[in-house]
Amino acid sequence: MIIVNTPGSWGSVYRPLSHASWHGFTLTDLVFPTFLFVVGNAMSFSMRKFEQTSQAAFLKKVIKRTFVIFAIGFLLSWFPFFRDGQLKPLEDARIFGVLQRIALCYFFASLVIHYFKIKGALVFSMVALLGYHLIMYTMGDYTLEGNAALKLDLWLLGPNHLYQGEGIPFDPEGLLSTLPATVNVIFGYFAGLFLQQSGKNFKTIALLMIGGATLVFLALGWDLLFPINKKIWTSSYVLLTVGIDVMVLAFLVYGIEILQKKKWTYFFEVLGKNPLFIYILSGLFVKLLFIFSIEGSSSYGWIAENLFMSWLGDYFGSFVFAVCFTMILWGIAYVMDKRKIYIKV
């Protein structure tokens, strides 16, 4: 996510590191839904402890975590809070965003899984995906300007509170598309639970591969009616990303658990032990680099142009800048891990 979010220049980005402009799919379009899938996977471990607690304790924990993650996402979007010596007006602040979507998907998935159990969560997922398709089909079209998700956000929030980077006010993390995105979390929970119950063996890997391939096949079929599209988070997009994630999980189980090839994993574990903190830190660093200037340009742009792109070329220099930025954050995460500092919500 950090590499995608921090190229040296947005005009010089390799195609796989860019989102699909509208309908379609790139490698980058897999990143965010995979984050949600991982949230659900982690919930397959954490939700068990709530079975022995009171309803009040469960709701308190879930609501608190949702609020904190949502608030952090909102504040990160609003930062820096001052412009020209005055507090930035809230009436122009974007309400939704990446962390806000993670918070809401976690909230709804937690309630569905806790109260409806496995069968109920499966029914909810099917109804959510089919219902979302029905809403998008009957209440609008599948274009940027005419989709139902945009219409709802404009009605609830108004244009000033939406993302402004699509040419018109439109939020790819808006309220309505949070419904199918919640299914990514629920399927991540299913995958984690299945893995725990079935064990790490060849049969489990085979079933995961078959399940993932089936979801991808269904997604490609659904794409003919409801095109794969990240920005409106179509139901076919959910099935495609979940299917790929399940197959990737099968490969990881095979390599790490069965072949015992574990040495390469530590690089990723470092980031995985403080993912929320590192992601927030990346956003703050970028905004600070844009605030401070060097020779009349933002620090971000000056560093990218003069230290990377001027001698590595536009595209490769832009990519290397993103990698180096990520590695600085990895270094911070590495020091935190060595000192046993783990920041959780």
Rank of each mutant, 00 (worst) to 15 (best):
I2G: 12
G8M: 07
S9L: 09
W10G: 14
W10Q: 15
S12F: 11
Y14F: 15
H19W: 11
A20L: 12
A20M: 10
S21P: 04
S21T: 12
G24E: 14
T28F: 05
L30D: 00
F37W: 06
F37I: 01
F37L: 03
N41F: 12
F45H: 13
S46T: 13
A56F: 14
R65F: 02
R65H: 01
T66A: 03
F67W: 04
L76E: 04
F79T: 10
F79Q: 02
P80E: 05
L87S: 09
P89G: 12
L90K: 12
D92Y: 08
D92E: 10
A93S: 09
R94V: 10
I95L: 15
L99A: 13
C105Y: 02
F107M: 06
A109Q: 05
S110W: 01
L111F: 07
V112S: 00
F116Y: 05
K117P: 03
K119A: 06
K119I: 07
G120K: 15
A121H: 10
L122R: 10
L122S: 05
V123T: 15
M126D: 00
V127H: 08
V127N: 09
L129R: 03
Y132L: 00
L134W: 15
T138G: 01
T138K: 12
G140L: 12
T143C: 05
E145Q: 12
G146E: 10
A148V: 05
A149E: 06
L150Y: 08
L156M: 10
L157I: 05
L157Q: 07
G158T: 06
L162W: 13
P172A: 05
G174N: 02
G174K: 02
L175S: 00
L176W: 00
T182V: 07
V183Y: 14
F187T: 01
G192P: 10
L193K: 09
F194K: 04
S198H: 06
G199W: 06
K200T: 02
N201K: 04
A206W: 04
I210S: 01
I210P: 01
G211W: 07
V216Y: 04
F217C: 14
L220T: 13
G221Y: 09
G221A: 11
W222G: 11
L224F: 08
I228G: 10
K230S: 07
I232S: 13
Y237I: 09
V238P: 11
L239I: 03
G243P: 10
M247V: 02
V248S: 00
A250C: 04
Y254P: 00
G255L: 05
I256A: 05
E257P: 01
E257I: 00
I258V: 14
L259Q: 14
Q260S: 11
K261C: 04
K262C: 08
K263N: 13
V270L: 06
F277N: 14
F277M: 12
I278V: 12
I278D: 03
Y279T: 09
L281Y: 06
V286E: 08
E295V: 08
G296A: 05
G296Q: 08
S297T: 04
F308L: 13
M309T: 03
S310T: 02
W311P: 01
W311K: 00
D314W: 03
D314G: 07
F316D: 00
G317M: 03
V320I: 15
V323F: 11
V323E: 07
C324T: 14
I332M: 11
Y334S: 02
V335Q: 15
K338A: 08
I343M: 12
K344W: 05
